[in-house]
Each structure stands twice: as C-alpha cells, then as structure tokens.
Design a protein around this nucleic acid. Sequence first.
DNA 1: CACAAAAATGACGTTACGTCAATTTCATGC
DNA 2: GCATGAAATTGACGTAACGTCATTTTTGTG
Lengths: 206, 206
Amino acid sequence: MTDAIALEPVGKREKTKAANRLAILAAAREVFAQLGYEAATVRDIIRGTQLASGTFYNYFKSKEEVYEALADDGARRFRPILRMARENARSFEDYLHSAFVAYFQFIVADNRTEGRPIDERRPHVLRMDTPEMMAVYQEVRQSLEEAVARGDAPRVDADYLACACIGTAQEVGAEMLRRSPPDIDAAARFVTGLLLNGLQGAARKS
Amino acid sequence: MTDAIALEPVGKREKTKAANRLAILAAAREVFAQLGYEAATVRDIIRGTQLASGTFYNYFKSKEEVYEALADDGARRFRPILRMARENARSFEDYLHSAFVAYFQFIVADNRTEGRPIDERRPHVLRMDTPEMMAVYQEVRQSLEEAVARGDAPRVDADYLACACIGTAQEVGAEMLRRSPPDIDAAARFVTGLLLNGLQGAARKS
DNA sequence: CACAAAAATGACGTTACGTCAATTTCATGC
DNA sequence: GCATGAAATTGACGTAACGTCATTTTTGTG
C-alpha cells in the first residue's frame, strides 16, 4: 500500500476543469438572481468568470443546461438529508415531519441570495427530470412504500402519494417563503398533519 | 335606449385585431407543441400566421408573454367551471371531487394536441402569476374558507390549504397524464380522499 | 371622397449564438 | 529536465434571431 488513494482529482487538468465548471455555475447563479433567467444570456454568465465565450460550450450546451445543472446540484445536496431523515425517524409521522422541515429549511437557505424576486429566477411549475431529481422522487416514493409495507400507512398508490407529497411541499413551501418571517415549523406541521391524516382517506377512496 | 349595446367588437378594426391575436396564440400553441418552448422562436410563431414579423410586436412583447397569454386563457376558461362546481355541490366532499374531476378533465383535454411531450412544451422558468391564474387561486381559497365558515371543514390556514390542493392537483394530474389511459375518476377519488381526511390532521396539528 | 388615425409591413441595425482554426496548457515518456 | 502530442482555451467569425422604425396600407369619420 504505497500509493495514496486519490478519490478527488489531483491532476492540474482535472482540477481546473472542476474549478471552471464551478465558476460557471456560480456565475450563472449570480446572473440568474440579478437579471432573471429569461433575460440572462450565455455571455452574461461567462462574463462573470475569467473564461472566454467559447469555453462555455466545453462545459454546457446552453443556458438551459446550466440551469438544470444548478437544479441537479440542489437535488444532489438534498437527497442525503432526506435519506438521513428516513433512517433516523422513530415513526412514520416523525419521518414526514423531519423530511418537510428539511425541505423547507433547504428552500429558505437556497433563497437567501440577493437580487431579483424569487419568482423571476425560480420555476413555479417545474417538471425537470434530471437524474438527481428523479432520484429524490424515488427516495420519497420508496419511503412511502416502506411505510406501507411496515403497516405504518395504509395501502395506497405510492406514486400518487409521492406526487401529492412533493406537490404539496412545493406549493406550501412557496407560500411559506412569501410570508415573513417564514415559519418553517408551522409549515411542516401543517403539511405533516394534512398528509398523515389524508393517507387514511386516500386508502378508503381509491 | 335607441342604441344597440355592443359587447362584442363589431368594427373591422377591432375584429381583425382580435382575430390576429387569436391567430398568433393558435400558431404559438402549435409551435410550442411541435418544437418545444425553448426551441421555438418568435419568427416560428409568426410564420404560422399570415402576418409580418413586425406585427407580432404589436400584440406581444416576447415569446414569454405569448405563453403567459395562453396560460391566462386556460385559467379564464377554467374558472367558470370551478365556480359551477362550487355552486352545484351538495356537500364539501362533493365539491372537492367535482372540482378535481373538472381540473383533470381540463388538463387531459388541453394535452390532446399532438407533438412533443408536454414537458418540452412548457417553459422551464416562468412567473405564472397571471391575473386569471391568481383569480383561480382566489376562487379555490374562497371555496375553502366558505366551507370552514359553514362548518364543513375544520378551521385551517386557508392559504396553505389552497396551496396544498393546487400543488397536489398539479402533481397528481401530471402523473395521471403519464399513465395510459389516464383514469380521471381514480385520480380525483384519490386526491379528494387524501385532502378531505387530511383536513382533520391539518387542523389538529397547526 | 378626402383626410387622419391606426395598424401592418419588412428591411435594417443590433445582439447573441455556436463553431472552429489557432494557440496555450498540461501529462507522459525518454 | 526536455520533447511531444493530446487536451483545453481562446476570441474572431459567420449565422440566426431580435426588436425597431420609416413607409405603406387599411379603416373610421366628416
């Protein structure tokens, strides 16, 4: 065992490549916040870095792809948090509540950036099937199926239920952000109570 | 009272103006379905009409504004349907169910157009608070407040509840569209049961 | 029918796009 | 170390779409 195991890129090549990618994403985040997504141009983004315009296209195909990468990164950061909530939960109710708290904390943190109003840089209706976002969906869905299998929840359509959880979290989360100050716990309690009880109804009716 | 009341535009001016607007919207609907929203250009849209490129800008500022107008029109058509559901409902449960059936029927009809998958027709980032959409939101919210006042539903945060209804309807509706054939009634029963029972939980917890 | 206001037109200057040949940077073998 | 080529960066360039505006056409009015 003489050779050190290198999980992180060490070569200069790999390093600057990662740095450039990060620089572009950071600049894009800033530009989207400043100008709004629609008004922003690829050149606005690249101007926020030390790179030349052509270099952008070594990393992303378009502005759209940059946005997806940002969203994907968000999902990547969020997933382990969700996973932990599942593993540490003492009950199904506990899981739901901590998952919603985690999500609401997440979106509050993600919107601390100064700039334009959130609405102009964020989707209201976002159906983005990036790999990481689908993974988050699957994580949610599996948690729910597990709960059903353990008898913590009645037998329901897990896909519909996952959609309901996500849709509710998104919309209530957005409404929470509009209030000041945003009360994360109140929102989480509301959503948890709604869905936990709703489960019974969903089972009865479908 | 010798003068006839003209609610509809009769002058040639007004008439062609309305027709042009409609033509642009129809062409846009087609182009978005064909190329997807992001790929579509203002010129693609105007090419689908008899008008010149400059004329487009007499009606809309941009592609985004056209999309908003389409969404707004959708909301305008949907609102009276929702209103009727409220007025004809024999119980709160009946109202919820018929409202969801109406919404699901609506999105199924709205997606019968051939072309690209729905995800690609829709802008990724867009402020969707058009006047008509906000009116739909208010309609939902008022229905819920009324139900609370009548004692049909426990006292809950009407805004959060409205958001939950809308978010759930949107996400479950999208999932329903992915299934074939879409079972409107099953989806409506699921969502109705979920929210109707959820109410009790939301009240208890918040 | 004449005249003015309103709307349509499409050519034009501008802006952003995406590509690519030339150049620089880095890893590898000697 | 140094030579060599692969990989990445660069920015100028051709292309495409944008949005405007002077001109022309259409419509309402006296």
